[in-house]
Design a protein around this nucleic acid. Structure first.
Lengths: 337, 337
DNA sequence: CGTAATTTTGCACACCTATGCAAAGCCTCG
DNA sequence: CGAGGCTTTGCATAGGTGTGCAAAATTACG
């Protein structure tokens, strides 16, 4: 194990000063002649700038902290992959922290603290909230935070979500147009903004259309809870279910078909939310509201980088609209067929 | 945005030298009296050691680089989550790089290079190989590499896989015991050790049992390819299929049932490999060989840390056995029922 | 109480790069 | 050819911590 080769070594070989080497590699101005000689010497010695030293002095690590929960829901691996790629394209790297299932707030706090220790240039919280105290700490440290797929009113944080209320409303329109009259809702976790917004938009639109939602049960984004909720709603005689995300919808469909022997969509229509890749699998063929992950991620990255480069930039709140994808898990209205 | 508080600030407030502060926070020897005063001052000022400066001088970043591909296969998000958690428990953090679908080797090379730039203390490659040149570079830089779910003979790298040959053999035993006589194989990508090993173990055991595999088609761990392979094998009249991983098995089952209208397992038995959570979903209820992710990840982390802390440690090759999980996608032999 | 052994502490430097500043070099134009 | 403007270069220092070394303080022991 040999000693690392430093900018001094390169400088010596190229017959210039260390600062010349630094300037060449940090893109500052340098004459073509010296630049060439420096590069040649660097190649010969196998020199690469020490990222740590560079970060220490510039105060910028070019690392983004990404906190993600619910990795069992395929929506998030997909998002994670895109974050990693898009950030890489922008010259950033991704320090990933996962939040365990029964995540206490103190867990999140500790994670954020560790990110601050690592001098990350920015933080993305995917479906994870942030306490006011910590938000203030990030603010003080000048580290921008963007919430992905989660809102937090009054936090002053930038956030990117899909148009959840509108999405819920679209489902209401669709199910009513399909002639359903006893519509139930296995809600996304009501402790999350996404869950609440989808529910709100759905129930409100149903009311506008002159229907009462037969029942709303919190499925907490969990398989077992979703199944329990489904049983409760079936007892009320529903003929259609709007489920708060695809991940739960699969559990609901399995339960309806395989455990109870019901037919989807003949006995019960099921509509999900997210349009994860599995929703298109023939076994489920799930009608669902698409969350445009690609655009959501790109928007998040853009907002983050914007705030990093321009500290005075406003924290924007963005909602991205996504279409309802018609498949076979719910009765399709005549007109749309 | 205030200036960071440094160890000098703490030292001044506590009335000691900067090195005393350093020693308290790096766990070196210090008298109880000064340690208490330092901690008190640090708390009052909100001091936290600068990780970058610390890494710069110690040469250890406490960051592990994790390269992962195939995030669309739920096996890997699961592994990723466990890596993140287990490494966190050991005081390490995880820098994640994803390799895009059509990953050229140059992509991987560039990623490894970037990891070296970041002074990672170790590297985990999940289902990704490593060229000899780069392996040598890591070796020279004193950075241990462990392959996860992938072998590479002659590389001299540590690796952790499941007992793939044995697993393939178990499937052969099971299908033959189930009375199948025309058995086909949608293989895992034959460019990967896991794919080859499973195929090898499977075909060899079939031969021992006096059967020829009706056909072997490379599914390349890809949905569309797996479907194409299935069609080819069906044309040869198979009554059972061993599919190289669960992810492809789902596509195969969807194709058999929904496109072709065949019954699984009555017309064709299907067996997968991995036992991802979805395999237990009622819609698939897939018989499959379990890869014990938890143990595989823990073993990988242990091997990595062992090599980090003891540079002379041997690079171990570990295979972890996993059981065949009996479910409803394949005919179950009388005796086992 | 004196001396030796041990622990604790401070000093100074190392880690490696970026950058402000002033000097030196170059070019332009009258 | 000379003055003025612009670019390039080197010097020196900062960024925040860990650590070897020697001095100081403490303890142990005869």
């Amino acid at each position: 194990m040999t000693r690392r080769v430093t900018s001094f070594d390169v400088a010596a070989r190229a017959g210039v000063s260390q600062s010349a080497v630094s300037r060449v590699f940090s893109g500052a101005s340098a004459s073509k002649a010296t630049a060439d000689r420096v590069r040649e010497a660097a190649d010969a010695l196998g020199y690469r700038p020490n990222v740590l030293a560079r970060s220490l002095i510039t105060g910028r690590s070019r690392i983004i902290g990404l906190v993600v929960a619910y990795l069992g829901n395929p929506f998030y691996p997909d998002a994670l992959e895109r974050f990693s790629r898009d950030l890489q394209d922008e010259g950033y790297h991704t320090l990933v922290f996962t939040v365990p299932e029964g995540a206490a707030d103190t867990d999140t706090d500790r994670i954020i603290q560790q990110m601050l220790d690592h001098q990350v240039d920015g933080i993305v919280l995917a479906s994870v909230g942030l306490g006011d105290a910590l938000a203030a700490r990030c603010e003080a440290a000048g580290i921008p935070v963007v919430l992905f797929n989660r809102g937090q009113v009054g936090s002053g944080l930038a956030q990117v979500t899909s148009a959840n209320r509108l999405g819920g409303a679209k489902v209401a329109d669709f199910l009513v147009a399909g002639g359903h009259t006893r519509i139930g809702h296995v809600a996304g976790w009501q402790g999350s903004s996404t869950g609440r917004d989808r529910t709100e938009g759905f129930v409100a639109r149903l009311a506008e259309l002159g229907q009462d939602c037969v029942g709303v049960e919190d499925g907490r984004y969990d398989h077992a809870e979703a199944v329990r909720a489904t049983d409760d709603l079936l007892a009320k005689g529903v003929d259609a279910l709007f489920v708060g995300n695809d991940h739960m919808a699969f559990a609901v469909m399995d339960h309806l078909r395989c455990t109870l022997g019901l037919s989807v969509p003949n006995d019960v229509s099921v509509v999900g939310y997210d349009d994860v890749p599995m929703a298109a699998f023939a076994a489920y063929d799930l009608t669902t509201v698409r969350q445009p992950v690609g655009r959501m991620v790109k928007t998040t990255v853009a907002a983050l980088i914007n705030q990093i480069e321009d500290k005075s930039a406003q924290a924007e709140v963005t909602e991205i609209d996504g279409p309802l994808i018609l498949r076979g898990s719910a009765r399709i209205p005549e007109g749309l067929q």
